[in-house]
Amino acid sequence: SRHTFEINGERWTVEGVSEELKEILRAAERASNDEAERLLRLALKLI
């Protein structure tokens, strides 16, 4: 499935992501810059 999210003013669209990964991306959208970066690094390990 496709998911579009915005982090630090940048929009991203990813396809074929699991519900778990979507949850991480949604958390990154709400997080501070440092926390968002940490969550994105974690998410990339899952891809």
Rank of each mutant, 00 (worst) to 15 (best):
G9Q: 01
R30H: 10
H3V: 12
R26V: 09
V17K: 03
E37V: 10
N8Q: 05
R26N: 08
E15I: 15
L25M: 07
G9I: 02
L39W: 06
L44W: 05
F5W: 02
E37C: 12
S1G: 15
T13V: 14
E37N: 10
R41A: 13
I7H: 02
F5P: 02
T4Y: 13
S32P: 15
S1H: 13
R38H: 09
N33W: 15
H3S: 07
A36C: 05
L46Y: 10
L44H: 06
K45G: 14
K22H: 14
I7W: 03
A43Q: 00
A43M: 05
A43K: 01
T13N: 04
I7L: 03
L21C: 13
K45W: 13
L39Q: 01
F5L: 06
L21E: 02
L25R: 00
R11F: 15
E19M: 06
D34Q: 12
S1T: 14
I47R: 02
V17R: 01
I47S: 03
L40K: 04
L21K: 00
E10Y: 06
L42V: 05
E37I: 11
L39T: 01
S18E: 04
R30I: 12
L42A: 05
V17I: 13
E29Q: 08
A31P: 01
T13Q: 07
E35Q: 06
K22P: 00
A43R: 00
E20C: 11
V14F: 15
D34M: 09
R26D: 07
E37F: 09
I7Y: 04
G16P: 05
E29R: 04
R2P: 09
W12R: 00
S32W: 05
I47C: 12
E23R: 08
A36S: 06
K45H: 14
E19N: 08
A43W: 04
F5D: 02
L25Y: 01
E35D: 09
R38K: 09
G16F: 12
L39G: 00
E19Q: 09
S18H: 05
E37G: 06
S32M: 08
E23D: 12
G9L: 03
E20D: 09
L44Q: 07
E29P: 01
R30T: 11
K45N: 14
E15Y: 13
R30F: 09
A28W: 08
L44C: 13
H3R: 03
V14C: 14
F5Y: 10
A28E: 00
R41Q: 13
R41V: 09
E35R: 04
V14G: 01
E20A: 11
E6C: 15
E37W: 09
L25A: 01
N33Q: 14
G9T: 02
E10A: 07
T13G: 02
E23W: 07
E23G: 09
R2E: 12
T13E: 10
R11H: 13
S32A: 09
F5C: 10
T13A: 05
A27C: 11
S18Q: 04
R26Q: 11
G16V: 14
E10P: 00
L46M: 14
E20P: 06
T4C: 15
V17N: 05
A43I: 10
E10H: 10
N33Y: 15
I47D: 02
L21Y: 03
I47K: 02
G9S: 02
E10S: 07
H3W: 14
R2Y: 13
V17P: 14
D34A: 13
E20M: 08
E23Y: 07
A31W: 03
R11L: 15
R2C: 15
S18N: 10
L40Q: 01
K45R: 13
R30N: 12
E19K: 07
H3C: 14
N33A: 15
R26C: 10
E29F: 03
D34W: 09
L39K: 01
R38S: 07
E37H: 08
G9H: 02
D34V: 11
I24Q: 01
N8E: 05
L40S: 01
R41T: 12
G9Y: 02
N33I: 12
W12G: 00
V17W: 06
V14A: 05
W12K: 00
E35P: 02
G9R: 00
E35F: 05
L42Q: 07
A31I: 03
H3Q: 11
E29G: 06
A31H: 04
L39N: 00
I7T: 02
E15R: 03
D34T: 12
S18C: 15
E23I: 10
K45Q: 14
E6G: 00
L25P: 00
S32N: 12
E29N: 03
E35G: 03
R2S: 13
E6A: 01
K45L: 14
G9C: 11
S32C: 09
R41N: 14
R41W: 08
A43C: 06
S1K: 11
S18G: 09
I24T: 02
S32Y: 07
E10I: 15
F5H: 03
L39F: 04
A31L: 07
E10F: 08
L46N: 04
S18D: 08
L39S: 00
L42R: 04
S1F: 08
G9P: 00
E19S: 07
G9E: 03
L46I: 14
L25H: 00
L40I: 07
A36L: 10
L21I: 15
I24V: 07
L46P: 01
E6P: 03
R38M: 10
A27R: 12
I47E: 01
E19P: 10
H3N: 09
I7E: 02
L42D: 08
E19C: 13
A43S: 01
S1E: 14
L44G: 04
G16M: 09
W12S: 00
K22Y: 15
S1P: 11
L21G: 02
N33E: 14
R30L: 14
T13F: 10
V17M: 08
A28M: 07
L46H: 07
R30C: 11
S18R: 04
T4R: 04
L39Y: 04
S1W: 06
E23C: 13
L42E: 10
E6V: 14
R38W: 09
F5K: 02
A36E: 02
T4W: 13
W12E: 00
H3K: 04
E37L: 14
L42P: 01
W12H: 05
E37R: 09
D34R: 09
R11E: 13
W12L: 08
L25C: 05
L40E: 00
T13L: 11
A43L: 11
E20T: 09
I24F: 04
G16N: 15
R41G: 08
T4P: 03
L44R: 07
R30V: 10
E29A: 08
E23L: 11
L39H: 01
S1A: 12
A36W: 05
W12Y: 14
I47N: 03
E29W: 02
L42S: 04
E35L: 08
